[in-house]
Design a protein around this nucleic acid. Sequence first.
DNA 1: CTATTTTCGTAATTGTAACTACAGAAATAG
DNA 2: CTATTTCTGTAGTTACAATTACGAAAATAG
Lengths: 196, 196
Amino acid sequence: MAPRGRPRSFDRDLALSRAMEVFWAKGYEGAQLADLTEAMGINPPSFYAAFGSKEAAFREAVDLYIATVGSAPMRALDSATTLKAGIRAMLKGSIDVALSSQPGGCLLVLGVVNCLTENEAARECLKKARRTTLDLIRERLERGVRDGELPADTDAEVLAAFYNGILQAISFQARDGASRHDLESLIAPAMAAVPS
Amino acid sequence: MAPRGRPRSFDRDLALSRAMEVFWAKGYEGAQLADLTEAMGINPPSFYAAFGSKEAAFREAVDLYIATVGSAPMRALDSATTLKAGIRAMLKGSIDVALSSQPGGCLLVLGVVNCLTENEAARECLKKARRTTLDLIRERLERGVRDGELPADTDAEVLAAFYNGILQAISFQARDGASRHDLESLIAPAMAAVPS
DNA sequence: CTATTTTCGTAATTGTAACTACAGAAATAG
DNA sequence: CTATTTCTGTAGTTACAATTACGAAAATAG
């Protein structure tokens, strides 16, 4: 049973994916509706009918980003055989993500840094996602302590904040135009923080 | 010999200092002219007469920031007795700076991350300042190599990018609401990257 | 086919940001 | 005192962003 009225003339999922790319490249405030609708191949009324508002579209785009692009580094963290290999793989994966957009960097880190008070909700949305990233790293480190991969007195919270910081630095430097070589050279000094 | 016409009724240096604080707290695009003029205690025509444009005022504010607030961590880097103490002091100084504004973080790092194409010039202005920070760290590390504080095969460029990344992480996490304790706990893992 | 529902494209509307025109005020030069 | 210069405050102007009103179009239900 097809829906009642005139059918939508565009692919909503594809349009959302395009919107995600625009938000990723330009940030929430930098992405103007005209940029979004042009990339999506639709007009403003279709945008509002399908997504409700710019902010609602952003939230959907962030969810899509987390479900696709953003989760790869975190899966790499958990699926490696050792803790150190996991952290290395997470950083490597984050570099892959950071370089896969032009300009570079992670949407969750760079999408809303400074914003007008009216856009604080979008900032909070990303802040929550960053908190989740931090939790995932901390949980992996705690598992490392339990498994004896790390000394029993390791402060997982602190070390997680440190590696979260490295992820942020990767995004930031990618946005400033760093090359793959530049970014990969950050991994070795960062790995020195893991007790061996 | 006093100047010819009606004298300016406000202190230009003080007004610039106030503008710097607003740009620092809200970023270039987040700082609206109304925010600036209110903090400066003047009206828009006085602002334009004294500073020319929002962008020109931003450049002056950045120069003031570098000359005052921003240079403290870099002076700490050079004036410590040992290299490791210098890096530690730089990071500590950067935390002091990051926590001295509400919300936290460094103007040079956070002032313009995403921006409209029309504001790309402001972004470049900060990018150049960040490049200078990187150069200062690299030069100190190179001196460490010459003085035998670091192994001869140390890659100063790489290590400088790493510590520049730690500075960026400190600012990001301060902006996200990290406490002094949170930020200071990043120092120990970061210091592990210095060959001893 | 007709009525109904939903979408589409054009062209507003509304709100707000950076910036400025202009008339009056406050100083100096002669 | 008068002319000249420069600043100040009020009240715009201009441009542009997000959002929407509205009539035409494209589908289904009966």
